[in-house]
Amino acid sequence: MTFYYHNVYLNEVATIAGPYEAKGPLSQFYDRVYHNFYFDMPTFEQAESKIIAESVDLLLSKINKTKDKIDVHISGDLLNQIVATNYAAESIGIPLIGIYSACSTSVLGLIMASNMLDAKQIKNAIVTASSHNNASEKQFRQPIEYGGPKKKTTTFTTTGAGAAYLSSNKLGLKVESATIGTVIDLGITDPNNVGAAMAPAAAKTIYEHLKETKREVDYYDLILTGDLGKYGQEILKEYMQVEYHINLNNYQDSACMIYDLVNQPVHAGGSGPACLPLVFYSYIFPKIKKGEFKRILLVATGALFSTTMLNQKLSIPSIAHAISLEVIDDLS
């Protein structure tokens, strides 16, 4: 399902990153970094809530607006019952739409906000997505301090929050179109290899998007996926060729950009809802504004599993949502 937008713009962004991201190659681009996992809060879950609220505050100060001038806040995270979002929303105080779509939350949020803006239901919106390494390790994997050997395909959940402000004001980037993905499951059961589980979902969404918009793949200067990781991105490239006969040349994966995969202990790269926003908002967004890229397709991928379903021997269903962003053409 592809939507086109006529009057939606991604005006401004704000990012907050955690300690591992602060040591990564993009450290200088984040608006704020924290060097420990607690962010002056008593628990990791509360720490995640704090950076969501902080990212919204940071964004509001950048756009010079107060909370009461924002119509809606769309936000999601990885924790059960999206508690990080829900607890942050109380202090933020903007009408909330809480969403869960695992690591594809960020783009789903952008799509929902764009739809509401295009339908003129709202005048503006803030979209946030966050994750916290330790809070989600505890929930999805082993205890944090447990050191059982990890597989090379394991990804490392990103700590951070990314916030975006969308409105009909002609500033920043134009939100051009978006494609909602379908859920796909090709039988991957290993939670330590989610890149492989999510690659077919990303491929299908990219294919559907290109088909429905009648575009060639090189229409985009860059196709940026969320968190497939070092091995997942190679799987995507080959799957794309074999299944859809599309060569992904102008393609990158944010999981491989957010960390130094050689020198940081992150195995196959980053993951989590914050991974794509941190890379895109902090690093790519300014590049587009400078004109280094003209058209970008963001494809956020999400592995929609829980430990309960994995223990019941079920495989991992995945989804991917895509959104097309481009530089504002003054002639149009």
Partner: peptide, 9 residues
């Protein structure tokens, strides 16, 4: 697909 995944992992 399992074969494809195995090749890359």
């Amino acid at each position: 697909y399992q074969i494809l995944v195995k090749k890359h992992c």
